[in-house]
Design a protein around this nucleic acid. Structure first.
Lengths: 124, 124
DNA sequence: AACTAACTACGAAAGTCTTCGTATATGATC
DNA sequence: GATCATATACGAAGACTTTCGTAGTTAGTT
């Protein structure tokens, strides 16, 4: 049982990570702030995600209210493992350094990461 | 013109990042150490990648010798940007911390990253 | 020059993803 | 209870990915 949302599915998950539960209408509106998507397209996708077990839902009157079936972190970690494997041959530290080097990182970010490294080291 | 190798294409790129140029035979042999793939499958994929501009090639006798059209880092960065966007809503530092927290990171890795952070900070 | 082994080219099938149109159901309003 | 706006369900088309079989090409060997 591997978690493997497609790119469009991830778009929807991102909306629901931000605010959930949410209706198809709400999700579709959120998506349409970035790009044009038909309502039934979003509906279909969310139905598929429900069947795959990526979303939970419950009826509320005539609509459904959806929410992610798993915590954000669980999904992100699953995606991350795959990605590290696929693109960086499994080397997490390579990925981290590339990420830090390429995307611009603010001094605050750097501090946060340092603190986190300290924590990590103490834990071991 | 966005760089967007598929997962199978990435598998091939990883082989050629390791050692290139390489023939279809060599790449296919390398792939078959992990999983079974038909020779013509690999061939077709590499032809497609050549047409897409992901690989360069030149004739050498009756075979072709292929190599990545772009430096590894360029491709990795392109993939990384997409991934940060898709899975982490654009937050690089979130990705980095998740990566460090979840995958096990050795003390040496941590040191390497610290050194890298120092460098980064001095550069700014 | 014919034969053989290994290569390339290419078409097509099977699977998945994304999209949307159409049909049907539901609940509120007159 | 008929009407209307809005929901869901579902099928199917079109694009892309992955896979491999078959046909044809090439260069070395007898």
């Amino acid at each position: 049982m591997s978690i493997k949302p497609t790119e469009s599915e991830l778009e929807i998950l991102r909306v629901l990570w931000e605010k959930s539960p949410g209706t198809v209408r709400e999700v579709n509106d959120a998506l349409n702030e970035k790009r044009e998507v038909g309502y039934t397209t979003t509906l279909k996708l969310m139905q598929i995600m429900y069947n795959k077990g990526l979303l939970k839902r419950e009826r509320a009157g005539k609509t459904h209210r959806y929410e992610p079936a798993m915590p954000k972190e669980t999904t992100q970690n699953a995606l991350l493992s795959r990605f590290v494997e696929n693109a960086f041959g499994g080397s997490t530290s390579n990925l981290v350094m590339q990420a830090l080097g390429n995307q611009r990182t603010s001094p605050e970010d750097i501090e946060a990461i340092r603190a986190y490294l300290d924590e990590l080291e103490n834990k071991q």
